[in-house]
Design a protein around this nucleic acid. Structure first.
Lengths: 164, 164
DNA sequence: GCCGATTAGTTGACGGAACAACCAAAGCCT
DNA sequence: AGGCTTTGGTTGTTCCGTCAACTAATCGGC
């Protein structure tokens, strides 16, 4: 007779195989991306991602909250990062005219140059470490798996604004 | 005529689709795992993983170097983490008898209890956020994709000792 | 039009991770 | 056997991320 919470359903071999590999990838990939970008541009992958989002935005400008959603950052984290980027002259913060509470982050010319300089090396790393080892079929499978996972990992679809 | 380095091959739409989703997953998953474990057991996912590796090892003991490989940690990182776990009584460090340079990390009974207590909630999180959204077919695809990626992300197969 | 509630963002303190410098034990070479 | 090299770990500094507390501005009800 069960008295406490339901028995744990442990992972069967197929589940365990998939899960362990996903954990390994999740653990290894950030380090690879950070190392390459830090070495060649002095940017964190997260900093690069922030700059890249701004570079694709209209007028190279986004509200802090929007930028936080697109990069999956908390607002405090983004605030600190943007301050550091501002210290380096890659971004400026401008009070939003329409809403006195809001702040707009705007990519400077120097920031644009930094993204343009960093992009080729970054793309090359993504190719050699992630895309090239996969077949075309696996690429499609990965997209669908990513969609399925993001349904639960990001139910509000905050980060998926990029590709939806 | 090309003079500088080769032109960058930018990502085509299929590549971009897959890549952006993978980045999102890699960015989101660690936070989910950490939050659940920290809330229910006061353990980081990495700390949990360290304890779990020890719990499966013969005599619940592993050399620091081996443990670092299995968890994809640098030795300094692992050293700090193990010291904190030792402060909490979950692990003890014992000088290795066969090699005076080496240190063995051994899971205490309290550490074993901590893993056993934390495991069900962790597995439940893995199920609800990762495994359940995927079809059985996608589970197999994910395993193969993981294998392909780990070939380049972890060429020495240090982390794959778990399932190879 | 004013007051509470919500939203937007910043700041400061604390904890964890990377990197570099360091120490100690073992292996090796002659 | 003595000295160089390599291997195994630890320690300290610095940087980044999280959490909690706080400020400022907008909104909503009356």
């Amino acid at each position: 007779m069960e008295t406490g919470p339901a028995e744990t359903r442990w992972l069967d071999p197929a589940e365990r195989d998939a899960w362990l590999r996903l954990v390994a990838v999740v653990e290894l990939l950030p380090g690879i991306l950070d190392a390459q970008l830090r070495g060649s541009s002095g940017l964190t992958h997260f900093e690069y991602f922030v700059l890249a989002m701004l570079s694709e935005a209209p007028d190279r400008t986004l509200r802090m909250t929007t930028l936080a959603q697109r990069t999956n950052a908390t607002l405090p984290r983004l605030s600190h990062v943007v301050r550091r980027l501002e210290d380096r002259g890659l971004v400026v913060r401008v009070p939003c005219p329409e809403d006195g509470r809001a702040t707009n982050a705007h990519l400077t010319d120097a920031g644009w140059d930094a993204v343009v300089a960093a992009a080729p090396g970054h793309v090359e790393t993504v190719r050699s470490h992630v895309l090239d080892p996969l077949t075309r079929e696996q690429l499609d499978q990965l997209r669908d798996i990513g969609d399925a996972l993001l349904t639960t990992l990001d139910p509000e679809g905050r980060m998926t604004a990029l590709f939806e």
